[in-house]
Design a protein around this nucleic acid. Structure first.
Lengths: 175, 175
DNA sequence: GCAAACCGATTGCATTTCGCAATCAGTTGC
DNA sequence: GCAACTGATTGCGAAATGCAATCGGTTTGC
């Protein structure tokens, strides 16, 4: 507890929360990938986080109030991690971050389609997505059918790109 | 060149650019504080960056295409750092980051008034601010009078809070 | 002219964090 | 019973960070 902050500036304090190379990656996988278990996060992401770093960041994000942890009733050792409202409201920031990266950095097509769809959807889509996350992680009621979720839409876009690239390319279409 | 990236995900690539504790602080001071010289950045910010870290980050941000460096004609040793378009387009991200921090973190009132004004101004204000930065750093034409700039507006808001707090409190208003 | 202040860094060094591999104790499926 | 899986933990070399002192050169004050 009682971290001594460098300053009371909002941007600085935000950086003190997730100004490192892994915290936002974990939150990204939970938000967009629907990952909720330690092993999912460990093995699921492309960036190959180390298990000690993952354990440290999960603990830290819990202390900061971004995540909660609960026992999984189906498995005595499993833990389910949930996003808090504090983490769910990062969606617009992640959307902007993805949009910026898509313009300025060497993103791959299949991994940036989600960012593109989220950018085009704009704030209304972000709000809908946040409501879905609240339903999923906080148990609030929702009237969105499971096949019309924002996450399903993003996933469908991703798979369409993957399918198109696989079909259209003889060999090195990745270049 | 040719950094080997962890993945082609836009969010990951963005984090590889400024996923550390200092890069965005430096850009914040250049964007909102108008700092353009090494010493300004070294002594000006509240977070007290070390000179070797500052030198390293300036170099890194130049290599990444976020900053450029030019000789100052008024002083043979002075260097002027300028934002590139790539850095200027971070304004919406910084605005969201400030807005999020203001809600969830223990920000100080005088340092968060800028974030509040920027949030209330919304995208139109961000666009105006980016145009001003383009004029200031890239030399593009601008028709905004110097006393009506977004930065001046934010600064006036800051000073108003400082003045109010100083007036209302007897002695140690800084606390 | 000459010393003091200032300019953008650089160096050395102790501390902390990172990243990787191996491993742990307990749980489940079969 | 045993292999696979659960959320972690440990050890250790490498890298980053933070701090203070310093560098060679430039400008300012007088």
């Amino acid at each position: 507890m009682s971290i001594d902050h460098r300053s009371g500036c909002p941007i600085n304090l935000s950086l003190e929360v997730f100004g490192d190379r892994w915290s936002l990656i974990i939150l990204r996988d939970m938000i967009f990938g629907g990952k909720r278990h330690f092993r999912d996060l460990l093995n699921g992401s492309l960036e190959r986080i180390a298990s000690n770093i993952l354990a440290d960041r999960l603990k830290r994000l819990m202390e900061l109030g971004m995540l909660t942890r609960a026992d999984d009733p189906t498995h005595k050792q499993k833990a389910i991690y949930s996003l808090t409202e504090m983490a769910i409201t990062l969606v617009p920031i992640l959307a902007h971050l993805g949009a910026w990266g898509r313009v300025w950095l060497p993103v791959s097509e299949e991994l940036s389609i989600r960012a593109e769809l989220l950018e085009k959807g704009g704030p209304p889509m972000w709000e809908k997505f946040m409501d879905e996350l609240r339903h999923e992680h906080l148990g609030t009621p929702s009237d969105t059918p499971p096949d019309a979720t924002v996450r399903a839409t993003l996933q469908a876009g991703y798979e369409a790109v993957v399918a198109r690239k696989a079909a259209g390319a003889g060999c090195d279409a990745g270049a």
